[in-house]
Amino acid sequence: MNLDQNPALIPFRDKIRSYFETEYPQDILEKVASGASLTTAEVRRAEMALGEKGWLASAWPEEHGGPGWSIEEQYIFDEELERAGAPTVTPMGVVYVGPVIYTFGSDEQKAQWLVGIRDGSVGWAQGYSEPEAGSDLAALQFSAVRDGDEYILNGTKIWTSAAQHADWIFLLTRTSKEEKKQQGITFICCPLDESGVTVKPIITIDGKYYLSQCEFVDVRVPATNRIGEEGKGWSYSQYLLGNERTSYARIGGKRKQLANIRAIASRILTGGNQRLIDDEFFVQRLSQAEIRLDALEITTLRVLSSVRDGGSPGNEASTLKIVATDIAQEITTLFLEAAAEHGNRKFEDSVSPDWIGDSSFAAPGVATYFGTRAQSIYGGTNEIQRNIIAKRVLGL
């Protein structure tokens, strides 16, 4: 996959870019650029705008209602969405559970859930981590006890992203205790407004509400909400996690961040009365981040090419998760340092007063910095990813 040498893709890129410039809700772009959190209504409106075009489920095959785009077209769409500054599509529906449903679910489940996922009208959350089962996900104790045609759910899920915007949650539950802890786990879906479900906010250090703790007390759901076979949930979760870890790359967004840092650094003076962009140590680190991002893009394209005919990325996706996390943290650290210089140093005399008084770039940059600190933990810690690479990829 070499997107730069394929002129046939230029009209497609132009079409996507024009949509974000002229048709996509511009007030959503402005709010995201300000660093403010979107309301549930705004999240739904943003995703339904893409759903109306048939683009929300950009990686889905046509047979399941997706646009049927090539791997290259999917990649370009993601790049342009990030270049435009649109909010990242909530992955729990279209990236995570949707492919699990159309791959392992029944025809009735596909009819029940896929439409709302791909048109953006129904939000989903992921119920994986527990207070005593984070990195060691297979140690989960959340129980699902079969009672006739129903399952009774009890337990707690934690660090649940976007639960405050979700209508449904997909859960890894324990339906039996086996010698091997990965066995006896079952994949079940539950409405978040079901009786016995409580969603409690977890406020992060930046004062925002990204995460929740979800408690289930004697919650009854029909057995038809189980995806696939009982006790096979771990296999379905691994299929899902391949897609999750690939989604962390976000090349377009990182390129936009680096370009933004260069623009800011070119206008800031350091204590040595030179522009920050002329500081040898700073620009060296900035260039290294750009080189590493090029390498990440090449690796991402190689992984995506390997699943060109469908399926989920394999254990190699762990490499993407590690590298994408490291680069995200490098970039946001550079941004934070540039923001610090903005607050503590003088500007060139030629800089307009509007720029001197404008610190609007700093607030969202600081929030992003804090967010990337958690990236090495969520989605499976980087230490866990290295173990996966060592054991399952390198066979050590």
Rank of each mutant, 00 (worst) to 15 (best):
N2G: 05
N6W: 13
N6Y: 12
F12S: 13
F20S: 01
V32I: 09
V32C: 00
G35K: 02
A36R: 14
S37T: 11
R44Y: 15
A49Q: 00
A49H: 01
L50P: 02
G51V: 00
A59T: 08
H64D: 10
G65I: 00
Y75M: 07
Y75I: 05
D78Y: 10
G85N: 05
G85P: 02
P87Q: 05
P87M: 04
M92P: 15
M92K: 09
V94H: 11
V94A: 13
V97H: 08
Y102P: 00
G105N: 12
Q109D: 06
Q112R: 08
L114V: 06
D119I: 02
D119L: 02
G120R: 06
S121Q: 01
W124R: 08
E132G: 15
A138E: 13
A139N: 10
Q141G: 02
F142R: 01
D147I: 12
D149S: 02
D149I: 00
G155D: 06
S161K: 10
Q164P: 07
W168M: 15
W168N: 15
L172Q: 05
T173L: 04
R174S: 00
K177G: 11
K177F: 11
T186E: 04
C189H: 03
D193M: 01
E194D: 06
S195G: 13
K200N: 14
I202H: 09
I203Y: 15
T204C: 07
D206R: 04
S212E: 02
S212Y: 05
C214M: 07
C214V: 13
D218I: 11
R220H: 06
Q238I: 03
R245F: 13
G253H: 03
R255A: 01
K256R: 12
Q257F: 09
N260M: 11
Q274C: 07
D279M: 05
Q284S: 15
D294K: 07
S305L: 08
V307D: 02
V307R: 03
E316G: 07
A317H: 08
K321F: 08
I322H: 07
V323P: 11
A324W: 11
I327K: 11
E330T: 10
E330Y: 01
I331G: 00
L336G: 09
A339C: 11
E341C: 15
H342R: 11
D349I: 14
V351R: 15
F361I: 06
P364V: 10
T368Y: 04
F370I: 13
A374N: 14
Q375T: 13
Y378S: 14
G379H: 03
N387T: 10
L394T: 06
G395S: 12
L396A: 10
